[in-house]
């Protein structure tokens, strides 16, 4: 089942997520990227109902882009987090989006930051955060091993520890994960942690 988690390190923030598209007992896909590169310096890790997740994250992305086109300056990570919360809160009492979000970003003069936004629009700035069944393991893992100002190597090591814990302790563990980072040079995919590949379609 879904696992999305992230943390803030020294000069960077990262978001990791499982890459399984699951419906009831069926795995439809094991390379579904749930961490969107929102703009040049922002990552949006999302979990929740598949349709809502894609729809809502794209809606946020397009509006963040629109703001930048209109005003010539991008939204800060804090502003994006508050915009996202506003949209979720507005939807909450009409027809809610079931999407939990970890928003990571890097701003000049501010540095890296990570925001926790759940589907009922609770916004909180955190150093480390997680959603889904994986959070039962990753939060404890990060409480134990996280230090403020971790280097990228230390952070990736911690992410790998978390993934190992999920794979070994969670019954419904997803096989594959994607790790993305954002730092002063921008947001980018860092690595995949795959234990299975999607079976290719054999020729008829």
């Amino acid at each position: 089942m879904e696992c999305v988690f992230g943390l803030v390190g020294d000069g960077f923030a990262l978001v990791a997520a499982d890459t399984s598209a699951v419906h009831s007992i069926l795995v439809h896909k094991s390379n579904e990227d749930k961490v969107m590169i929102l703009d040049s310096h922002k990552l949006l890790g999302a979990s929740g109902e598949a349709g809502d997740r894609v729809q809502f994250t794209e809606y946020i992305q397009k509006n963040v882009h629109l703001y930048e086109f209109r005003n010539g300056i991008p939204l800060t990570t804090a502003a994006t987090a508050n915009f996202t919360r506003g949209e979720l809160a507005l939807a909450l009492r009409k027809n809610p989006y079931f999407v939990n979000i970890l928003l990571a970003g890097y701003d000049k003069n501010i540095g890296p930051s990570l925001y926790y936004i759940d589907y009922i629009a609770t916004l909180h700035k955190v150093d480390k955060g997680a959603f889904g069944y994986g959070s039962y393991f990753t939060l404890s893992m990060m409480d134990r091993h996280y230090k403020s100002g971790m280097s990228l190597e230390e952070a990736i090591d911690l992410v790998d520890k978390c993934i190992i814990e999920i794979r070994s302790r969670l019954v419904v563990a997803p096989p594959n994960f994607v790790i993305k980072i954002v730092d002063k040079d921008g947001a980018r995919e860092y690595a995949w942690r795959e234990s299975i590949k999607d079976a290719g379609v054999s020729a008829a």
């Binding site: 809160a89 909450l92 759940d118 629009a121 609770t122 916004l123 909180h124």
Partner: peptide
């Protein structure tokens, strides 16, 4: 109470 409503 509910954190989201606290913020709103």
């Amino acid at each position: 109470g509910l954190a989201t409503d606290v913020q709103t």
